[in-house]
Design a protein around this nucleic acid. Structure first.
Lengths: 351, 351
DNA sequence: GTCAGCACTCTATGTTAATGAGTGCTAACA
DNA sequence: TGTTAGCACTCATTAACATAGAGTGCTGAC
């Protein structure tokens, strides 16, 4: 059934999809014949369109309407037809500036990145916080604050800092804390967060002689802290951009979109399903498993520290998406993001 | 013009507003005559309704429609007419459970509180993070992590912990850091964050003999850190609840609402304008200055640590709001929130 | 002062007709 | 054999119009 498309059909299909992405309205044969100089009459184009519909690349909302691209049509467009989009100077600057802000924390960088992309593309952006399982512990210390409060401070080799307050009901002996710090550092620094499971923690705990209750509490805090760094989270930006698109001028559809996007677990699942082997990935319409997003496309890009992929940034918009621009924007952004993250974690020496 | 309302008019007005809040549809005289046992015919009620309209408490969308309350009508209702709402056991439990979660950080408590309220009321909730200007510094330390990195850790008496990474390009002498820590603690602990302005920082800086560049960097970080704790921020919860209300079934209105609520600066301004002398405050319709919220009401409640008011939690919904329930919910929540915060900061001894 | 009755107003809903965009098909042409 | 002009046909959209129903305001009787 699937045949290689002739050059003319490809040209026509491209013209139709370009036009539909622009105007959001079914494209008629006359429009294509006029606007794009193919040297063909509308009748000929009509025939070709009928063929393209038979092949599954186009759809017709009703008999007397023009054609709109099907998911399959968009797929072909993305894979073969569309022309690369060249970012404008203004767009390049927007990304550069966002990534050059003075930023202290990973999460801040992540958020700026997703903000920039949502502004640039005018779609909704999701970005997953890095999975830090492969990071190692570089520094771990319990610091007494006052009689009843201590602070657990943990720093990873990727530069993530986390602290937890530890409350105790008897004052901790400073010698004990000192001893504890030495043991913990001995046992834990250099390990990846993944390696520090509850079994290993139990083993370490056994080696320490101390009030059981206090120890359990402290070890509990350490585990929580590690889990916290390790846990997947994500940020959303530009959800209300969806209002810009006529396909969401229907209150029910807008409602559906918002309520989907509010469910973080589903978004995480969505990102997890993305094929991580390619840098840029495009899911069109029903290609994703969520029926709520059946009329959406998702373009994702991986981002990394060095050559370790640590997360994904994704753009969600209607299937009638400006794929070329979205992809170019994401490519350019992740390049910059990767550089910024390198700097953040290893200093300017990597410049 | 403004005359004291007779008992009968008050009863009728109350019935109309109760009904309208329930059904979101203009209320006719017949409906009131039937549903509420006032022992009056619809004709009589019609006359009273005409009076109430003349007085400005009711409005008529068009001649042959029923009446809807005006802002003034809602105002009277809130101040005098409505009956106190008694929270159900389930509702009470929801709040209690939310506030009994294991929570480590102020911001987490704040977020749980606003989440609980948005779930309970089914409106949008905003909550301002505490202003910490009156907090004092309890602990401040620079901790060397490795050759090029140190950590600035700052703890306030209200238990807020903040840390910043400090990057230096020459290794810091550990004796110097020790000395610096002593001086900084000497000069800064016990001061409120407000008191630590740039002038005072300059004075302290002068007393320390050290490489100017390093010192400037460190002091810069300390200032940033304090500003960070001190800066106003806020959380939003349940924005999409607005879709539940027929007054926002119009895409344009929904758009307007979302785009307003996205502007944090405006929300902060809104909260700042609230009369802080009362615990619970209600702004109805155009009583707030933002035209985007002209058809919304905002109910706010202060929350405190001890008897120091530190922030506001607010509920935004259509003017046709379940005021009684919203107010009861907020009252009950803030009581619990205040207790939780006390515990978080001073431990269980305040139980 | 209350209220039954009635004319009146205005929205909401449904029906019908007109309009027009766009198609598919046919037949003629290169 | 591919292209295209021409035409009948389809279907969504819009406007115009009629109808039904909810609710009012007013009048006059009690």
């Amino acid at each position: 059934m699937r045949v290689e498309l002739g050059e003319r059909k490809r040209k026509i299909l491209q013209a139709i999809i370009d036009d539909y992405i622009d105007c959001a309205e079914p494209v008629g044969s006359r429009k294509i014949a006029k606007k794009h100089e193919l040297g063909l009459s509308s009748a000929t184009i009509r025939n070709e369109m009928a063929d393209l519909e038979d092949m599954g690349y186009l759809e017709q909302p009703h008999t007397s309407a023009g054609r709109i691209p099907s998911d399959l049509g968009y797929r072909l467009y993305v894979d073969q037809l569309m022309e690369k989009y060249q970012l404008t100077v203004a767009e390049i600057n927007r990304i550069k500036l966002a990534m050059e802000l003075k930023m202290r924390e990973l999460n801040q960088v992540i958020q700026e990145a997703s903000y920039a992309i949502s502004k640039l593309t005018q779609y909704t952006t999701i970005i997953s916080t890095p999975k830090m399982g492969k990071s190692t512990i570089k520094y771990l210390r319990i610091i007494p604050i006052d009689q009843f409060n201590s602070l657990l401070v943990l720093v990873t080799d990727t530069g993530v800092v986390k602290n937890y307050k530890i409350k105790t009901y008897n004052e901790l002996d400073s010698d004990f804390i000192e001893r504890l710090n030495i043991i913990l550092n001995n046992k834990l620094t250099g390990l990846t967060l993944e390696q520090i499971n509850s079994q290993r923690m139990q083993e370490i705990k056994k080696e320490i002689v101390c009030d059981e209750e206090i120890l359990t509490s402290i070890f509990g805090h350490i585990s929580d802290c590690i889990n916290d760094i390790n846990s997947a989270d994500l940020y959303l930006e530009g959800t209300t951009n969806i209002f810009n698109y006529p396909e969401y001028n229907d209150i029910e559809k807008a409602k559906e979109f918002f309520s989907f996007v509010e469910q973080k677990d589903k978004l995480i699942k969505l990102l997890n399903k993305v094929n991580g082997s390619k840098k840029i990935n495009v899911l069109i319409g029903r290609e994703n498993e969520f029926s709520e997003l059946r009329e959406c496309s998702i373009v994702t890009s991986t981002y990394s520290i060095g050559n370790k992929v640590i997360g994904l940034i994704g753009v969600i918009g209607p299937t009638r998406m400006r794929y070329a621009k979205t992809i170019s924007s994401l490519e350019y952004l992740t390049d910059n993001l990767n550089r910024t993250l390198l700097k953040l974690f290893y200093g300017d020496k990597y410049d």
